[in-house]
Structures are given as structure tokens and as C-alpha cells.
Design a protein around this nucleic acid. Structure first.
Lengths: 135, 135
DNA sequence: CATTACTGTAATAAAATATGTTACGAAAGT
DNA sequence: ACTTTCGTAACATATTTTATTACAGTAATG
């Protein structure tokens, strides 16, 4: 269930943090990623729901950060773009008559939960400001 | 790039570790996961390449562990079924004329590498024997 | 107040990936 | 010989992701 959402969202935010006072258009942002502007607007919709960015319609419209880059962590972005990370599940429901089949997903869940809390604590320590300072 | 490979492989190995002396057929294994036996055989092919299991053709053929469950770690399985975990990349090559586009994948790589080494060290601490003892 | 440049969103299409199925040759026990 | 099973390739289907088109609505500006 992994897609480009995290990467795209982080890319958008990195650009916004480079120009914190300007409203950047979805077209401009899309140009840096070489993807369709509609996808950018969708991710911006998600960011707006979480009050990370604000945008302005109309001519000279666009989007900018709604809070300081130092106050946004990569964990915020992670939580916004994934429910969680996992190493996957088998697609079908396993056989409940088999002792292993019956418990496998539950045991995988426990394992993946562990992994997630590690990732979260790692990402919590990195602010957007730090990440974008590497460019 | 996440699929069910890890989960399926771990499920197979858990079953094999429950019957370490028997050769289990792909049909039996598939029955516990409720997937197609050919998929099981494909994953077994991967396990064989890594000398984790051995199999026997012909009547009463099947597969069994080639080493003790205590000597197989979840990290081994992870490395066998993923190159690495990531939070994804944007599908297209970003714009190299943009300072952010030019470096984004490199910086994501560094981040994901960090995450991976954490996951690896976590998984290294869990043997197949421990995992399967929970069933 | 018409024009232009944007956002927001829905509907649809295309592409990519993952999973499932069929088929069949080869191996090995009986 | 017959049966059961692996190994593997080729093909089919399903699912997910990404892209495209379209258009109503908003706001700046001459």
C-alpha cells in the first residue's frame, strides 16, 4: 500500500519552505516533480485538511506554509500520507482452520506495529526545516 | 513496491518450522494461506536460492527447512523479499533544473537508508523459532 | 466587467503492478 | 505404467496508481 504520496508531499513542502512568503502554484510545483498538477492539488488538499498549508484561489493564487518549517516534522507528514508502514499481508483471508492461518495476521500486525513506532520516533526527530536545509 | 512476498514467505516458513521433519507440499501450504499453489512454489524457489529450505520432487515430494528455525532471522526473510523498505518515490524523474528536484531522491534515499537499518536491527533480533512459537 | 490565471474537484482513462490460472515436462515413489 | 508432486513459463485477471480532461468558482487587473 505504498505509493508516492509521502515523497510528493515532502517534495511540495520542501519547495514551500524555500519560499515561505510566496504562494506557489500547483503548476510550478508539479514542474519540479514532473508530475500532473492535479496530483499536486490533491496532496495539497490533504495538507490543508491538516492545517500545514494554506492556499489562495484566483489569479496569483497558490499555496504556502501555514506554519513554520521548524514546527513541522517528518512524522507529521508520514502520518498524513500513510496509515502505517507494513511489510505486507497476503491478499486473501487465510484458512481459519489452520492454527497458523488463524493467527498470522494478528502476529504480523504486532510485528509491524513495532516497526512503525520505531519509524515514527525516528521521523519525529527531523523537522521540515532540517530536511530542506539539505538542498 | 510492497507486496505480499514477506508475509507469504514468513507464513510458509512458520508452517515448515512446525513440522521440521516433514516435506510439506505446495498444495498444503497454499491451503493455509488460501492462495494459489504456484505462488507458493515461486516463493519457495526464492527460499531455495538462499538455502533456507530444500525440496524434493516427485511423489511425496515437498519442502522442508534446510536449517534450524533458531538460525533463521526475520531479517533474513526481509532481505530476501525486499531490497529495502521505503516510503516511496515519485514515479517520474524530477526536474534536474530545480535545486530541490535535483537532490530529492538522493535525500530520500538517505532517509530511507536510516529507516532500513533500524528495521533491520529490529528484525535481526527475532528468529523464526521465536516468531513461530507464538502460534 | 471582460479577461486572465489560478484552485478545487469529479469523472474517466491509461499504465503499472500484483495475483491467479493453465499447462506441461520432469522427477520419484509404488 | 501410474500417480503425485515440483519447476517454470506463458498468459489472464484484478487492483492500484498515476495521468488526463473538463469545468465551475475565485480573485486580480486593465
Amino acid at each position: 500500500m505504498i505509493s508516492g504520496k509521502f515523497a510528493i508531499t515532502l517534495h511540495i513542502l520542501t519547495l514551500l519552505s524555500k519560499f515561505p512568503d510566496e504562494f506557489l502554484s500547483s503548476d510550478f510545483l508539479a514542474g519540479s516533480m514532473n508530475i500532473n498538477p492535479v496530483l499536486v492539488r490533491k496532496e495539497i488538499g490533504n495538507l490543508k485538511k491538516h492545517n500545514i498549508v494554506e492556499s489562495r484561489e484566483g489569479k496569483f493564487g497558490g499555496t504556502r506554509l501555514a506554519k513554520a518549517a521548524k514546527d513541522i516534522t517528518l512524522e507529521d507528514i508520514f502520518k498524513m500520507t500513510f496509515e502505517s508502514v507494513s511489510l505486507g499481508y497476503s491478499k486473501n483471508d487465510p484458512n481459519p482452520a489452520c492454527p497458523v492461518g488463524k493467527k498470522i495476521n494478528q502476529n504480523l500486525d504486532a510485528l509491524y506495529m513495532d516497526i512503525n513506532s520505531q519509524i515514527s520516533s525516528k521521523l519525529k526527530g527531523i523537522s521540515l526545516l532540517e530536511f530542506s536545509s539539505e538542498f
